[in-house]
Write a protein that binds this DNA or RNA. Structure first.
Length: 215
DNA sequence: ATCAAGATTACCT
DNA sequence: GGTAATCTTGATA
C-alpha cells in the first residue's frame, strides 16, 4: 500500500455533500493477499443523520450504526437483505453522524479478481458493467464485508482511498437518492452524485431526474 | 421471544 | 415490468 498516496483526514472532515461530490474520481484501493484491487469511484450518495430521515443514524446510536459517531475517514459497513453488504465512508467531525454510500466504481486493477469474487466472466461484454455498478456489487467485487466495519482509511493496511482524477462540475450529475421510499421527504433531496455517461453508474429511473449542478 | 423491514440483486416474463 | 432470495437488526412485549 506504500505506493498509494492516501487522502488526508482533512478531506473526510469536510461537509458531507462536498465529500460525496469530491469522492467521484478518487481511487478505492483494497489489498487481498498479494493482490491489490482498485477502481475509480463513479457514484455516491450522502447521508446526514441530523436532517435526514433516510439515514440509518437518524434515530440515534445503535450497535449497528455506532461507528458513524467517530470522526471522518472510517468505513461503516452494513448487511442488507441478508445477503449483500454496503459501505459508507464516514465524514465530518466526531459526534457528527454522517457519511457517503459508495454506489458504483469503475474497475482499474486486478479486474479478474473482482470477476472471480462476483462469479462473473469479465470477458462477457454483456455482463462487464454489472461487475461494480451498485453498492452491493461494489462490496462483493472488492471483498468488503462485516469484518471491514470501522476500517480506518487513514492507516489500514488493506483498504484506503487515494487521489486519481478530477472532474469538472459539468461532468457530474446530481439526482435524488435511490431506494429510500421509507423516507418520502428525504427521498427528494438531491444528494446522489455520479459521473456523467460513465457506464459503471447503477441504472435507475432517477438517472433522468437531474438537479442543477452549481459551483 | 417474536417479528417486520431493509441505502439490493438476479432472474423471470 | 415483477418478484423471490435471505438473515441481521432494532423495536416491541
Amino acid at each position: 500500500m506504500e505506493k498509494y498516496q492516501r487522502l488526508s483526514q482533512d478531506f473526510y472532515l469536510q461537509d458531507t455533500l462536498t465529500v460525496a461530490k469530491q469522492l467521484l474520481g478518487k481511487r478505492f484501493v483494497r489489498r487481498i493477499g498479494d493482490k491489490i484491487l482498485s477502481g475509480m469511484i463513479v457514484e455516491t450518495e450522502a447521508y446526514i443523520a441530523a436532517i435526514d430521515e433516510a439515514a440509518h443514524a437518524h434515530k440515534g446510536k445503535t450497535n449497528r450504526n455506532k461507528i458513524m459517531w467517530e470522526s471522518g475517514g472510517r468505513l461503516y459497513v452494513y448487511q442488507i437483505y441478508g445477503m449483500y453488504f454496503c459501505m459508507n465512508i464516514i465524514t465530518e467531525n466526531k459526534d457528527v453522524p454522517a457519511g457517503v454510500l459508495i454506489r458504483a466504481i469503475q474497475p482499474l486493477e486486478n479486474i479478474e479478481v473482482m470477476g472471480d469474487l462476483r462469479h462473473i466472466d469479465i470477458n462477457d461484454k454483456t455482463k462487464r458493467f454489472y461487475l461494480t455498478s451498485g453498492p452491493g456489487r461494489v462490496c462483493q467485487a472488492f471483498g468488503i464485508n462485516k469484518n471491514d466495519y470501522g476500517t480506518n482509511l487513514l492507516s489500514n493496511e488493506k483498504i484506503t482511498v487515494t487521489q486519481y482524477k478530477e472532474f469538472l462540475p459539468s461532468e457530474i450529475v446530481i439526482t435524488p437518492r435511490i431506494n429510500i421510499d421509507y423516507a418520502p421527504i428525504a427521498a427528494n433531496f438531491p444528494w446522489r452524485f455520479f459521473v456523467k455517461d460513465n457506464p459503471y453508474v447503477s441504472k435507475h429511473k432517477n438517472n433522468s431526474r437531474i438537479f442543477n449542478n452549481e459551483s
